[in-house]
Design a protein around this nucleic acid. Structure first.
Length: 487
RNA sequence: GGCCCCAUGGUCUAGCGGUCCAGGACGCCUGGUUUUCAGCCAGGAGGACGGGGGUUCGAAUCCCCCUGGGGUCACCA
């Protein structure tokens, strides 16, 4: 039985890279009919951010990543918050001390910093704990303990030899033990470090495969030696390629949106995000890129995970989101865009039937142009308000033309009398005006569009006119007459 | 700097010794469709696969070195 886990720490908004890791684990579990476990690694009180756990969990839910065990759902290995498992880590850490595989260290942070500074000054290749407390005699330890000195528990790394493992993505990797120092397992506040808590919980929760970011590879000697010291068989490891920004540096805020709540706010679709994230380091092996959750689950395999870093470019995500928006049923699109229109103040929070119908009529007109749901207000504002931006250059270009006054007058006259006021009818009479004026279609269509929406681009004109409705159209055309007069 | 990871067009990626004068997608450009934009359709530019050595009848594909990029060296994860 495959059992994988996603183990975020609630230290901020969930980062895309992190969610990508969650997604790979989830897909892997679903592919194998295994279990997906969420475990909250809240062992750093200093970096704890209130509300971030909720943001993480809701991001998972938004993407459709449900968990079989974890917060809110419980499970056979509860609790799933490491802060509630302190006794376990304590017990194990002290057991290792008793077995001579770990030791208490009384060095203060200041002492350690001084030590590192000295090492750096001496040109050390890497700073390393010099193991001074490893050499303490039992009597010395006892004395310090009795005088109430705080201590951490450090793991005794082997001084020689190597550890190796077979990474499911990178293959066999070997490390020399002497290059890793005696790392802290249990902090002086009684909380475990990642290394201890992670290893202990992965074992206790019977995790079979650990899929995490490449930045953890360098911790493998610690983890491997810990497993060995505990007499436990390590799970399989698969280290995923890192997500980088376009400048090849670790993806961060200056590269644009990086946290999931922000992507959601911007109006990315869950399906698009899922699809894109799945392709961040994985591919199905053929040319397909648009893939459903079901297809991804079916095709997923660790062998097809790339081992080079993935540069996260928003433009492809944006394209994919546009694709998914175009595929949306109209009703769904309307439903998804509504909150954005409301937030922009274009549509009231509580709407009557007429407004609802109007929104439903108008939103699909710009469906193929939308890349983000948040594009809706910008694209559709003129349908809801008279306070929309006007392209002055376009007005200047068209409203100096000699046929405009007549055109407006004629349009107003015919539209006013037109019944029913529908796109085909509107097109028919508009074409009559074009013929009557003896101008090209565009010479009427463009200035009319400007008169009605303030811009040169927009939905198909006749449908737009029908949707706007006769009163609004007539009013805006009359308004345009005033502009012409003013020239 | 030590250790580790990585290396196919701007980006993602297919390729796992010959079927590759390297395929697809995004982006970019051109043309078509059209009342505009977008979309859609068609086409195009752009890489001799980071460099150098090997192995082999034959290498983008295997090996080595170099170079470049990244990760990591915390009582953070």
């Amino acid at each position: 039985m495959v059992r994988v886990r996603y183990a975020p720490s609630p230290t901020g908004m969930p980062h895309v890279g992190n969610i990508r890791t969650a997604l790979f684990n989830w897909v892997f579990a679903r592919h194998h009919g295994g279990k997906f476990i969420v475990r909250i690694e809240d062992t750093d009180r200093a970096r704890f951010v209130e509300g971030s756990e909720q943001a993480i969990l809701s991001s998972l839910r938004w993407l459709g990543l449900d968990w079989d065990e974890g917060p809110e759902v419980g499970g056979p290995h509860a609790p799933y918050h490491q802060s509630q498992r302190l006794e376990i880590y304590h017990q194990i850490a002290h057991q290792l001390v008793a077995e001579g595989k770990a030791y208490k260290c009384f060095c203060t942070p200041e002492e350690l910093e001084q030590m590192r500074a000295q090492q750096r000054a001496q040109g050390a290749a890497a700073t390393m704990y010099d193991r001074r407390c490893r050499k303490l005699t039992p009597a010395e330890v006892k004395a310090r303990e009795e005088s109430g000195l705080p201590y951490v528990i450090r793991f005794k790394m082997p001084l020689e030899g190597t550890v190796e493992y077979e990474d499911l993505i990178h293959g066999r990797t070997v490390f020399q033990n002497k290059l890793t120092d005696d790392f802290v397992m249990l902090k002086s506040d009684g909380f475990p470090t990642y290394h201890l808590a992670n290893v202990v919980d992965d074992h206790l929760m019977e995790i079979t495969h650990v899929m995490r970011g490449d930045e953890w590879i360098s911790s493998m000697p610690r983890h491997l030696n810990l497993y060995a010291a505990l007499g436990w068989a390590p799970p399989q490891f698969a280290h995923l390629p890192l997500l980088l920004g376009p400048d090849r540096q670790k993806l961060s805020k200056r590269h644009g949106a990086t946290d999931m709540p922000e992507f959601i706010r911007q109006g990315y679709l869950s399906d698009a995000m899922f699809n894109f994230l799945a392709l961040c380091g994985w591919n199905p092996g053929d040319d397909r890129e648009i893939l459903s959750r079901a297809e991804i689950i079916e095709l997923f395999s660790i062998e097809r995970i790339s081992d080079n870093p993935f540069i996260f470019h928003h433009d492809k995500l944006l394209w994919m989101n546009g694709h998914y928006i175009r595929e949306l049923p109209k009703e769904r699109l309307v439903e998804l865009c509504l909150p954005y229109l409301q937030q922009a103040g274009l549509v009231p929070q509580t709407l009557d039937e007429a407004t609802r119908a109007y929104v439903a009529q108008v939103v699909p007109l710009e469906q193929e142009k939308m890349k983000l749901l948040s594009d809706a207000p910008r694209l559709l504002d003129f349908f809801f308000t008279d306070e929309y931006p006007v392209d002055e250059a376009a007005v200047r270009k068209w409203y100096g033309e000699p046929h405009i006054p007549q055109m407006l007058e004629e349009l107003i006259r015919r539209y006013e009398a037109l019944e029913p006021f529908t796109a085909p009818e509107i097109e028919r009479v508009t074409r009559e005006v074009i013929a009557w004026l003896g101008v090209k279609g565009g010479e009427v269509i463009h200035p009319t569009r400007i008169a009605l929406s303030g811009r040169t681009t927009g939905p198909s004109l006749f449908e737009m006119i029908e949707a706007l409705g006769k009163p609004r159209v007539l009013q805006r055309l009359r308004n345009a007459q005033k502009w012409v007069f003013r020239r």
